[in-house]
Design a protein around this nucleic acid. Structure first.
Length: 338
DNA sequence: AAGCGACCCAACCGCAGGGAC
DNA sequence: TGTCCCTGCGGTTGGGTCGCT
């Protein structure tokens, strides 16, 4: 027994909306709103449309203050940052971009941004044999396309010119995150162990975490600690769902390169957390990146600046593959945590 | 001018979650 | 507590458009 359809699909009109339908829906919505029942709405206004279709049309097209196309550099950066951090949570990403809909951002990402950032890599025919090996790799096959894309972007951002590797541009870590970063650099950090996930667990850690470190934090300190805890865990749940409950998720994988003093992967994740934390908790009254931030965090220029970047992913696999006798870079990396 | 493929984006679909009963 | 219904979300589809040959 399948779920009953949301409406009578036989008599429902599908496909593009006519100007008359738009006008009808808009007039009703302007006057009455959906009234909490989208499914009943088409019947009320005498339209042969599914309620879900009406809702979608309203939210994505007819709603006031909707912007279409013309994404700015700032919006590009926000989308990139959030996608790398939380993945395809389009509704969350859209919530940070006033006037943008999740559908719009999703389409924009799939048709423009993703190709700009990843296209060169995928189109390059270098080492096709090795690419096949990557395809056949058992671990990479267990990753979703979204995760693989995030891995590629994540590693792309490890360029020395990337924002998150530039101490003058990278947001300061919260002392708690900094501490966790140091722990990860010292080798004592193991994300396979639940208690190692950088949440404040003990009373001492929680006190340290919530200690004000800036005027903005001090402002938050004035609100109740319960709210802070709730906000932090609400925010954290985004990360848990996105990757932290899956230690194999690439965004969670620190880059382990012999001789590297800083664990860049963890720092990037912490920086993204910090940034996203600000956004989600509205500390910045809306995302307003510094001009230098925008100028330097320019993925596209990075991609175009060096042909070396075209083979960054392959090289990373090579590095890890040669580090041990195991031929699979991914397997090596996953074994690192076991 | 016609054919073809690539690209774009509005719209659809199925699923998950939450609230009401 | 379980079921039903509705909403919201993310993945996918397919028709329109554009550019190349």
């Amino acid at each position: 027994m399948g779920r009953a359809p949301c409406c009578d699909k036989v008599n429902m009109k599908k496909g593009p909306w006519s100007p008359e339908e738009d006008a009808k829906l808009k007039a009703y919505m302007d006057k009455n709103g959906a009234g909490g029942n989208w499914l009943a709405l088409p019947h009320k206004i005498g339209m042969k449309r599914c309620g879900k279709s009406c809702r979608l049309r309203w939210l994505n097209y007819l709603r006031p203050n909707i912007k279409h196309g013309g994404f700015t550099e700032e919006e590009n950066n926000i989308i990139c940052s959030l996608y790398i951090s939380i993945g395809s949570r389009w509704s969350i990403i859209a919530a940070q971009l006033p006037g943008r809909t999740d559908n719009d951002i999703k389409n924009y990402w799939n048709t423009k941004l993703k190709k700009k950032l990843l296209g060169k890599f995928k189109q390059s025919n270098q080492n096709p044999k090795d690419m096949n090996q990557i395809e056949e790799n058992s671990y990479s096959n267990t990753l979703s396309n979204s995760t693989l894309e995030r891995l590629q972007l994540h590693m792309q951002l490890q360029s020395p010119f990337s924002l998150y590797n530039n101490p003058t541009l990278c947001p300061n870590l919260h002392p708690f995150q900094d501490k966790m970063t140091q722990r990860s650099m010292s080798g004592s950090f193991n994300p396979m162990v639940q208690n190692e996930i950088p949440f404040p667990h003990t009373k001492q850690e929680k006190d340290e975490f919530y200690k004000p470190t800036s005027p903005c934090d001090a402002l938050q300190e004035s609100s109740s600690k319960d709210n802070l805890v709730e906000n932090y865990y609400n925010y954290s749940s985004v990360h848990i769902n996105a990757s932290w409950n899956n230690p194999m998720d690439p965004i969670f994988l620190p880059k382990k390169v012999e001789g590297e003093k800083n664990n860049v992967g963890i720092q990037q994740v912490c920086a993204l957390q910090d940034e996203l934390d600000d956004i989600l908790n509205d500390k910045t009254m809306g995302y307003k990146p510094h001009e230098d931030h925008i100028a330097e965090f320019d993925c596209f220029r990075e991609m175009n600046s060096s042909n070396d970047n075209l083979i960054w992913w392959y090289n990373d696999f090579e590095t890890k593959s040669s580090a041990t006798s195991n031929s699979s870079g991914f397997v090596n990396q996953s074994n690192y945590f076991v």
